[in-house]
Amino acid sequence: MNIIVCIKQVPDTTEVRIDPSTGTLVREGVPSIINPFDENAIEAALQLVEAHGGCVTILTMGPPQAEQALRDALAMGADRAVLICDRAFAGSDTLATSYTLAQAIRSLGDFDLILCGKQAFDGDTAQVGPGLAEQLGLPQVTYAINIEVDGKKVRVKRLLDDRFEVVETRLPALLTVVKQINDPRHAGLRGVMKARKAEIPVLTAGDIEADITRCGLNGSPTNVVRVFSPQRHGQGEKLEGEPDEVARQLFEKLHTAQIV
């Protein structure tokens, strides 16, 4: 089976720290990584192809340096990778992104399954997967924690807030996966060497026959009008003393505040 995995390169927010004096983000030297949920999607794709045969294609839309994320995915074992890159795509919101990805996927040919991470680490929207499914007219199943492919059908266990749901749908389909679905593999040296040498084609707006009024800022109905630091309530109250003493103090405070 042919699987397309859509990934996003994001800043590694686990490496981001807050400058305590200014309350702003320290982003200096923060590396870019594959969105962690997308790594789960890659792993799921690799496992499905190991079981059923086929080919894993990694797709990302981003600036030229997003190529590194694709090489990292190739190092994990993906078969090929494609970068969608054009100035016309800059400023895309989730609608424009799903349109652009859909156009690229149409240009790539036949596939059986599209996998995405449940959401991106930087935007946290969870909107591109379903948006892409809509653009391609595919059934979607979000929050997959288990995937079983059986011929032209796929059975998916979904992880929801307070329950699991097992659903079945037809292929081709688009699934988004949660972190709990697997443990993404580490790239071995062989994979790193292979990824270094891989050719990564770059698709532009022209290559994917995109209508540029639907791309980038033009094709994005939403705009950010203001970015600001959240209010932090600053230093709270420090409780000091022996364990018994601070425990008593804390309990009284919580009690007074009617929290417990």
Binding site: D122, P221, N223, R226, V227, F228, S229
Partner: peptide, 16 residues
């Protein structure tokens, strides 16, 4: 919130 709550963003949808 964006970037894991480190930044707040206000978003509008002016035309659609």
């Amino acid at each position: 919130p964006a970037f894991g709550g480190n930044v707040m963003a206000t978003i509008v949808c002016r035309h659609a």
